[in-house]
Structures are given as C-alpha cells and as structure tokens.
Design a protein around this nucleic acid. Structure first.
Length: 344
DNA sequence: CGATTACCTGTGGT
DNA sequence: AACCACAGGTAAT
C-alpha cells in the first residue's frame, strides 16, 4: 500500500528568482529570532506558510524559491507563492539599503554592527502563529523555543507535504489548541508553565470571539500600536515584551521596540543606560529604552533594533569576529588563519 | 508604582 | 560528574 502523500525530490524543483539583492534581503533573517519555524536543510531553507511548503535558497545576488517540477507551469500557484513571499519579507514596504544608510548616519554604533549584518529585514508573520510562538519564548532560549514550536506543529497541526522522507506540518489552528486536554499534552511535551498560557489563550479567544477566532487576532492590525499592545497584554502569558514582539513582527507596527535581556544589555552597554547589574527592568525603564531607540532611528525603528539584536545573538557573534578579521587589512594570511582557528 | 519571587526545562559552561 | 547560570518574561504578591 502506497501512501497518497506528495513526495518531492529536492532535485526536482524549479527555482524562481524573487528578484532581490543581498542588501535588501539575506536569509539570515530566518534565523535571528523572529520566526522559530524555518529549518535549514543543506543549502536551503524550508517552512510552511499557510497551506503551502516553501523552499528558499540564496545566491550571491538574489533569493530564490523552489516549486515542484510538476507544478512549475501552474502560473497561478507560482504567482501566489511569489506574492506570499513578497508580503512575508515586506519587499515593497521599504528599501532596506536606504534605511541602513539612514540609520548608519544617525548612529555610529549601528553603522559598526550593520556592516556584518546586511539584509536583515522584519518578517510580516501570521498574527496567530506569532502570538503562540512568542508565548513560548518567555524566559527561554532560541534552541528550545524552536523545538517547542516544532512539536506544536507535529502534534497539533496537519501534514502539508513530505520532502526527502521528512514530513512538514502547518501551524495548528486556534480550535485545535483550544481543545480539552491541550495543557496536559503540552506539559508532557516539555512546555513547562507555558502549556497553561497557550491553552488558556486559545480558549479565551475561542470563547470571546467564537465567530472569528484566528481572524480576531489578525484584525488587531486595524488598531493603533498602543491599542493593539494593550489588547494583547490581556491574553495569558503575554506581557509588554511579548506584546511588542507581536506588534513589530505581525501587526505592522514598525515602531515597536521589544526590550528583552539582550536589548537591555545593548542599551546599558552602548547607549548609556547605566549598568544592567543589580537592577530590575521596570516599566518606566522599559519605556525609556524603547523611546530612546524610537527617537534615535525614527521611521521603522523596530527594524533597526532588530539588526542590533541580531548582532547580539549567540550564533552570530562568531561571524562578527570572523568578519572583523576578514576586513582588517593589516593581517597577513598567516595570522589571519591562526585567528580563525582560534575562533572555531 | 517599584521590587521580589515562583514558575518548567534544556543546554552550555565549570 | 554534579552543579549552576541562563535563556528574546509573566503573573502574583
């Protein structure tokens, strides 16, 4: 008996050009703590968006998306995928290259960091998915958050495609997470105290907005930044920081500045916000830090903040060190190699 | 309003 | 090998 699941071979893909450039978009964007769902498979990236599996890869000049060979002539599908990705990466919203230039003029610290982190855009994520994923993120590390989100999809989502013997699932619906038993199931899966938050948030929205459910979350896009943030905070497991993440990453509020432990560290170390040691991040301080970056960077300040944040991430600090060696002219090839070895 | 504490779990460092 | 700090915080007191 053969399973009737579409089986794709990575070699049998036709690659379409998203027609962008590294200064506008680099796929590092997929691993800098915005989405926890993209998987890095060999030289490309895989994730489901909506009901469709997306494969991405980048060259030195642009980004490409893969369409199964037997569907590549379905121009309606290709057009839909193209449109979905342009919206997801917000390619039409602003020129990142020009924004980087502006932020670099305004702030020398940004300029220093940005050289090593080109093409980091803000993704425009699905609001419901974004909400649940960032409830998972509280007091947690990116590795485990990614594993948890993956488990959410496997255990509560539906299978969308199989590629090279790996199954890919969509993000679970609100209804599926609002079901009885979700909390204990999530507890068993290692979600800890976030299990209750997820179950309660799903149940609360289902109960208060039975006709809309996920659409209710998406419709928050119609509200102002402050209204959206305050509404989100009423949900279990959503505080100021998580609410700001959602405002920035899926609610079109580019002025939202999530202040987490890293951003606080940056503010304290590079922007004169005193010493992080022996101090608590009060509501007032949280807002002061946000206001500082909003004033400093102006339009789309949340995007600039995200570049600084990326430079702070564990997985990226190595590259920053490597890059700074590469760019240094005084190094002889010999000492250059030795320094690289030391970093690895 | 500010400060403190409990809350789950896995990982990486000593 | 056991131990400990920490991770994109939130809620309760």
């Amino acid at each position: 008996m053969i399973k009737k699941v579409p089986k794709f071979q990575s070699s049998k893909y036709v690659w379409f050009d998203l027609n962008t450039s590294p200064k506008e978009l680099r796929l590092d964007t997929l691993r800098c703590g915005q989405s926890f769902r993209w998987q890095s498979v060999q030289d490309h990236w895989v994730c489901t968006l909506g009901e469709q599996l997306y494969l991405l890869k980048e060259s030195a000049h642009s980004v490409f998306y893969g369409v199964p060979e037997d569907e590549a002539k379905n121009s309606k599908l290709v057009k839909h995928m193209d449109q979905t990705l342009r919206d997801y990466f917000q390619l039409e919203l602003l020129s990142l290259e020009k924004a980087y230039e502006r932020w670099s003029r305004l702030d020398t610290n940004f300029k220093t960091k940005a050289i090593h982190f080109q093409g980091i855009r803000m993704l425009r994520q699905d609001p419901w998915e974004n909400l649940i994923c960032f409830i998972c993120s509280s007091n947690n590390n990116i590795t485990r958050i990614s594993q948890m989100v993956h488990k959410l999809c496997i255990h509560f989502g539906s299978k969308i495609a199989t590629l090279d013997d790996t199954d890919y699932y969509g993000f679970p619906t609100l209804a599926s997470l609002a079901e009885e038993g979700t909390e204990s199931k999530l507890r068993q899966l290692g979600f800890g105290y976030r299990a209750k938050y997820i179950a309660q948030t799903a149940q609360k929205i289902k109960k208060e907005h039975p006709e809309q459910q996920e659409a209710w979350v998406a419709d928050l896009r119609k509200l102002s930044y402050e209204e959206t943030k305050q509404t989100l905070i009423t949900l279990p497991g959503v505080g100021p920081k998580v609410a700001d993440c959602i405002c920035l990453m899926s609610m079109d509020h580019a002025e939202a500045i999530p202040v987490d432990t890293h951003v606080w560290q940056i503010a304290a170390r590079d922007y004169g916000f005193g010493n992080k040691q022996n101090k608590t991040l009060t509501t007032v301080l949280y807002n002061q830090i946000g206001d500082h970056f909003r004033t400093l960077f102006g339009e789309h300040s949340g995007w600039a903040h995200s570049v600084l944040f990326s430079a702070e991430l564990k997985g990226f600090e190595k590259r920053l060190a490597l890059d700074s060696i590469e760019h240094s002219i005084v190094e002889t090839p010999d000492t250059l190699d030795r320094k690289k070895q030391r970093i690895k």
